[in-house]
Simulated assay, not measured.
Amino acid sequence: MGDVDDARLSRIITDVLEGETEKFAEIIRTYQKSIFHYCFHMLGDAGDAEDSGQEIFLKAYRSMGKYSREIPFGAWLYKIAYHHCIDVLRKRKLAKYLPFFYRDERQHRPVDWWVEENCFNEFVQRALAKLSAEERNLLILRCVEEKSYDEIGLILQQNNASLRKKYGRTAAKFRKYYAQEKGVEPYDIGQGSGSETTIS
């Protein structure tokens, strides 16, 4: 996100709602990069991500009157982005997704996911294709966007405990599917690679 603090953002939102619509451009500048990255991770295509970003901000602008200050503006915007991306995926039926990798599951600690930049692994794509769009969204928000469970809860309107359980189940499902596609045991996955970046 950009360098606009909460107080400044609140003032901008008020100004837009009071008719100073040109100030919505500052909201776009603040969130443009993060929304683009989110859409890219969900859709797997830079062109689609750019187009979707424009549509998302247009939808947000048209819906500003419905925004409730009881939740952070960013969470509200990500919720719009989530529903838009789901619509795109439903229409397209097939999408490419940024690969996820994780450490040896024999290590008794939370699952670590790995992202290999600019590399789309066919085994990872096949494994992710077996997950629902909602499950992929949870992984992207948590691992790529680095959202906290509290933030994700605001976006998906689910409680923290439920999300933690769903994340655990989704991680386990991904391990299983990826191992099947790779033709290895789950504990072999993630070994021998030195180029990944940790996403916690």
Rank of each mutant, 00 (worst) to 15 (best):
E196S: 14
R106E: 08
L9D: 09
Y187P: 00
C85I: 13
K66S: 15
F36A: 03
E117S: 01
E181G: 00
E18N: 15
K66G: 02
L17P: 02
A133L: 02
I189H: 04
V88M: 08
F100G: 14
K166Y: 03
E117P: 00
K23N: 14
N118F: 03
E151T: 13
I13E: 11
K96R: 13
V88L: 05
I155H: 07
P186S: 08
Q125V: 06
E105I: 13
E135G: 05
E70C: 02
Q107M: 08
L77K: 11
T198W: 03
E122W: 03
Q125C: 03
L58S: 10
I35M: 07
K59F: 05
C39K: 02
R92M: 01
Y167F: 07
D104Y: 04
L131R: 07
T170V: 09
S68W: 09
L131E: 10
F101R: 15
Y167E: 14
Y149L: 01
G65H: 05
C39N: 11
R29F: 07
H41I: 04
K79C: 00
D51T: 04
S162A: 14
I189Y: 13
A49L: 08
E70M: 14
R164P: 00
I12T: 13
A46C: 06
K23Y: 09
G190N: 14
K33I: 11
A60T: 06
Q157V: 12
V111H: 01
V124N: 15
R62Q: 15
I199P: 04
F36L: 01
F120A: 11
E181T: 05
S193G: 02
V144K: 15
E20S: 06
H84V: 00
G192R: 15
F57W: 12
Y31S: 10
K93I: 01
L89S: 15
H41S: 03
Q125I: 10
A60D: 07
A49Y: 08
G74V: 06
H41T: 05
I152N: 07
Y82W: 13
R8D: 05
N159Q: 03
H108I: 04
E196D: 10
A25L: 09
V4R: 00
Q54H: 04
M64W: 00
R109K: 11
A7L: 10
E55Q: 03
A60L: 04
M1G: 05
W114P: 06
Q107I: 12
S68V: 02
K166T: 12
V115K: 14
K166P: 02
R136Y: 03
T197D: 12
T197I: 09
I155K: 11
E20I: 10
D87V: 07
E20C: 11
V88Y: 13
E105W: 00
E116Y: 01
I27E: 05
E116H: 06
F40G: 10
L154Q: 14
N160P: 02
H83R: 15
E196N: 08
C143F: 12
D45P: 07
G2E: 15
S148Q: 02
M1E: 07
P110Y: 09
K59N: 12
R11V: 01
A49R: 12
L138S: 04
V111K: 11
R175H: 13
G2M: 12
G192S: 14
G194M: 05
E145T: 06
F120N: 12
N137M: 13
V184Y: 11
C143P: 05
Y102C: 00
L128F: 01
D104W: 02
L156H: 01
S63H: 13
R142Y: 07
